[in-house]
Amino acid sequence: MIIYGTALLAVCHLLGIIIGDLLGRALGMTTNVGGVGIAMLLLIFARIYLHKSGHLCSTSESGVHYWGAIYIPVVVAMAMQQNVVAALKGGPVALIAAVGSVIVCGLFVSFINRMEPETTAQEEPE
């Protein structure tokens, strides 16, 4: 049943949000602390467990896969309802933050990859 997969996803989602809220309360704040991340971890572990015990058929899995595949369109819909007019008044923050982080990360990639032993690096000459 396809709804089993979607229900599993829903339960993981709700548990993650609840744990995130409890964690927030425990830390003395009203916000949700890492709820989505916790929900993702729960789903990964649930999948491993159900796979091992053989309780997950491919039809049920497609009830999760559909929602995973729909996430870019959902993000596009999310982009459509942002206050872009107000954001643009903020100036070139987005552009500078993006360029800055790409440059910093690029330098680190280059640095770490230069430490790679030459023997493996020479496997694929240009």
């Binding site: 949000i17 896969h65 995973g68 729909i70 996430y71 819909a77 459509m80």
Partner: peptide
């Protein structure tokens, strides 16, 4: 469609 609920739901699903 792009609200918090469906967005988080879809993102959690990608962990699968």
């Amino acid at each position: 469609m792009g609200g918090n609920m469906l967005r988080d739901f879809a993102i959690v699903a990608t962990a699968f």
